[in-house]
Design a protein around this nucleic acid. Structure first.
Length: 301
DNA sequence: GTCCAGGAGCCAT
DNA sequence: ATGGCTCATGGA
């Protein structure tokens, strides 16, 4: 008979970590904010995170007596990254200077490849609130239970590829995945049968890794780049979505209707080795300013 | 009612 | 190479 897992907490000291903007910047969809905390799952572990002066307070359920903060949690948070160093590698232009000013402490998280791929397959032409809803529904119906404290809000992990395959397309559509259901199912079955190995993406060149991902139906340049970036595999990857496109057109191209491939060529040349970080700063900057849609030089709501 | 959402695939120029 | 159309679905 083992005693119930005790709830543990410890503070990780880190400068310049804005937990709120990091968790709310469209990288992850499974964390929910409750009572000034962010709660979610990292792999099979339930966690609750709270911003405190000088660091982040981490709450987790102990698996072994007296264990330190699990490395998976620290790895996910990327709290050992020197943000000043990253920011100083951004191009010296007025746009990035403003973005850095507005997004102080914004970080990139390091997600597990399958969860990240699945999340962004579900993201296409969906609003972030909708993506979160679908994500939660998939967890509720097909995700394994987590070990949690009594007052937990998040109680399931994200479904394994195997669980998605067993669920089948119809059930995925019931979770409002729509036309993405087929794509998610196909990705899951290729992970299960080993025809794509997501663990290798970091060891491949960025172009190779991107092609590997884009071979999946429903995964194009943008979603592939999200996976390359948000799993920590390739820091240069610069996903260009509607928000980034809007921001780039307005801030770098005087509002002209530059097509996305041309924007992509610009970003590849302009933002250095930490282009992905720069992208996240621009994305958040554009969202907090509710950057307006530009059509033929005219604004719309 | 219309437009849009952290897109991608397919087909017609 | 480039530009439209469609996919499913809810919110603004």
């Amino acid at each position: 008979m083992s005693a119930p897992s005790p709830l543990r907490s410890e503070v990780v000291f880190v400068d310049d970590y804005n937990l709120d903007s990091t968790m709310d910047s469209g990288q992850v969809f499974g964390f929910v904010q409750s009572a000034s905390c962010w709660e979610g799952a990292i792999g099979h572990r339930w966690v609750r995170l709270r911003s405190v002066p000088g660091g982040i307070e981490i709450h987790w359920m102990e698996e072994q007596r007296g264990e330190p903060v699990p490395v998976e949690i620290l790895d996910f948070l990327q709290s050992d990254i020197d943000l000043g160093e990253v920011v100083s590698s951004f191009p010296c232009d007025g746009v990035m200077e403003s973005a850095v000013e507005v997004c102080k402490g914004l970080r990139l998280l390091k997600q597990s490849p399958w969860h990240c791929l699945a999340s962004f397959i579900l993201s296409s032409t969906k609003q972030i609130t909708q993506i979160k809803w679908i994500h939660a529904e998939l967890c509720r119906r097909f995700g394994a239970r987590l070990i949690v404290p009594d007052d937990a809000v998040v109680v399931h992990m994200f479904p394994s590829p195997d669980a998605i395959v067993r669920a089948g397309e119809g059930a995925l559509r019931e979770c409002k995945a729509g036309f993405r259901a087929r794509y998610l199912l196909e990705a899951a079955s290729r992970v299960v049968d080993g025809s794509i190995q997501l663990g290798n993406l970091a060891r491949m060149s960025m172009d190779e890794a991107r092609s590997e991902l884009m071979a999946l139906p429903g995964v194009g340049r943008k979603i592939a780049d999200c996976v390359l970036l948000f799993t920590g595999a390739h820091a240069e990857a610069f996903p260009v979505d509607v928000w980034i496109a809007r921001a780039l057109r307005e801030l770098y191209f005087k509002g002209r209707e530059v097509p996305i491939p041309k924007l992509q060529a610009f970003t590849d040349a302009h933002f250095g080795p930490n282009g992905g970080y720069a992208q996240q700063y621009l994305f958040h900057y554009a969202r907090v300013h509710r950057m307006k849609r530009v059509v033929g030089g005219k604004e719309r709501a």
